Amino acid sequence: MSMLMLLCELWLWLCTFAGRMTTILEVQDGILKVQWELEELRKRLQEEVPEAERAHLWKREDHLMKKEELLIELLIKMEAHLMKEKELLLREKELLRMQSGQNSTALLQDRSGEWIKHMLMPGLTTLPQHDYDLANALFPKKHGKLPVVRRMYYERLMQKPDVTESFLIEADDSTVPVVLSVVLRDSFGPKVSEMGVSGRAGFFLRDIFELCRSYNPSKFTYQFFSDCNATTAGSRSSSTKERSRPDTLLTASGCTFLIGEDKLSSLSDAEADLTAKVRPLSTMFYGELQFILGYIEAGSAFQWLSIGKNGVVRRVGPTLNLSTDVDRCQYLIAASIC
C-alpha cells in the first residue's frame, strides 16, 4: 500500500471523531489497537501458512508498522502542542497582571504563594534517616491538597466525589492552580514509547519543582535534566557513574538529589538499569546523608526509591498506578514534598 493510501486511511481514522477534536487519549488508543493487531499478525506469521497468505501478511505488517509510526508522530506533536498551550496561558496571565499594575483586581492577583501552602506539609525538623521515615514523609497520613481551578474542581466532584474531597481544593486562576489543573487533566495518559514515559516524567517534575521554587518560601536553586546523558548532565556528583547517566537528574551545588529511570513497560528493568548507574555516596559531597531520592517509571506504574549511602537501591512506599485518580493525586502531593 502506498504512503498516500496510508495517509488517507489515517485521515479517515481521525475523521471518525468528526464534530470534535481528537484527544491524546484517542490517539493513544489507536496506537494500542494497531500494536495489538501487529502482535496477532506476527503470531500468525510464526505458523505454517500458504505462501500467498504469508506474502499478504507481510504487506499488512508493513502497512501497520507505518501506521503506528505516523500515529506516534501525531501523538508527539499533540503533546508538544499541549505544552505550548499551557505556556501561552501562563504568559497571557502574566501579561494581564503586568498590564493591570497597581489597579489589579482580586481576580487577576496571583495568589500562588497562598495556594501552594495547601500542598505542602509543615517542614520536617530532621531529614529521614531510614526507608520507613522516607515512606512516611512521601505518604503522610495527613496529606496536603492540590489547588485546582474552579471548573476542574466541580467536574471532578461530579465524577469522583470521594477523591475530590480528599485530595483537591477549589482555587482561583492563579498560576499554581492553573498548572496543576493542566498537569492533572492531560499528562497521565498511557504512553506508547519509552520517550513518552520520559517526557511525561520530565515535563511534570520540572513543572512541580518550578512551582515550589517560585512560590515556596524556602528557596532551592537546582538544575533539572530529563532524557539526559553525560553530555547534557555533566554533574560533578559522584552518585552516578560517568558515561552512564540515569534518564533523570536533579542536581544542586554539584550534588545529585534525584535520580530517575524510565521504561515503556517493565518496572523491574527500570530498577535494574538504575541500580547499574549509581555508586556509593561520597562523604566529601554529601557528608553523613544516608540516602538520596530516586524513582522508576514504566508505562503507568511509578515507584519511589531510596538510594542508600552504600549505593543500594530500595523501593519506598507503594507502587503507584498513574492511570487512577487516587494514585495520581498521591504522586503529585509526594513530588511537591520532595
Rank of each mutant, 00 (worst) to 15 (best):
L322M: 14
L95G: 08
R20T: 02
H56E: 15
L74V: 10
L45A: 09
L138R: 13
R97C: 14
R328P: 02
P128D: 00
R236Q: 03
N216K: 14
G202D: 06
T256P: 10
E92I: 12
N229D: 13
R44A: 13
H143E: 13
S104E: 11
F167V: 06
C15S: 12
L120N: 03
R44V: 11
F285I: 05
P128A: 00
L146S: 02
V183Y: 05
S193R: 09
M83I: 14
N103V: 06
K263C: 12
E92V: 13
K117W: 10
V183N: 02
A201M: 08
G317S: 11
K309Q: 07
Y215L: 02
V183Q: 06
L146P: 03
P177Q: 05
S336Q: 08
S265R: 06
Q109R: 14
L41K: 05
R314W: 13
S300H: 08
G254K: 05
E73V: 11
Q303N: 09
K141I: 13
A106C: 10
F302L: 02
D273N: 10
I72A: 05
T283Q: 11
G19C: 10
L120V: 15
I208Y: 00
E170T: 08
K67Y: 04
L138N: 15
V178R: 03
Q99I: 12
L82G: 10
K241W: 03
A135Y: 15
L41N: 10
S2Y: 01
T16L: 14
T248K: 05
R42V: 00
V27W: 02
A171R: 09
L96P: 01
R328H: 04
Q35I: 07
Y153S: 04
A171I: 11
L281T: 08
W115T: 07
T251F: 01
R111H: 14
L250Q: 13
H130T: 14
V34M: 04
E94R: 06
F203D: 10
G308W: 06
E37D: 07
K160T: 06
R206Q: 14
E155K: 15
Y153T: 05
A171S: 12
S244L: 05
F285T: 04
R97P: 15
K43Y: 12
R42D: 15
R97L: 08
D62M: 13
F225L: 06
M119L: 11
E242A: 15
L146E: 01
S268I: 15
E73G: 10
I333G: 01
P147K: 06
E53F: 11
F285H: 12
R245D: 04
N103Q: 07
L12T: 09
W115I: 08
K263G: 05
E92R: 11
L107E: 09
R20Y: 06
M21S: 15
F139H: 04
C255H: 15
T126Y: 12
L4Q: 07
I307K: 15
V27D: 01
E39P: 03
V197C: 09
L184Y: 07
E53A: 10
R213E: 03
D29E: 09
V197S: 06
F188S: 03
H81K: 13
D207L: 09
S237F: 01
L267W: 02
T324C: 12
D133R: 03
P122E: 02
V312P: 09
E87D: 08
R44M: 09
E194Q: 09
L332N: 00
L71T: 01
L258F: 02
Y331W: 02
E47P: 03
P246Y: 01
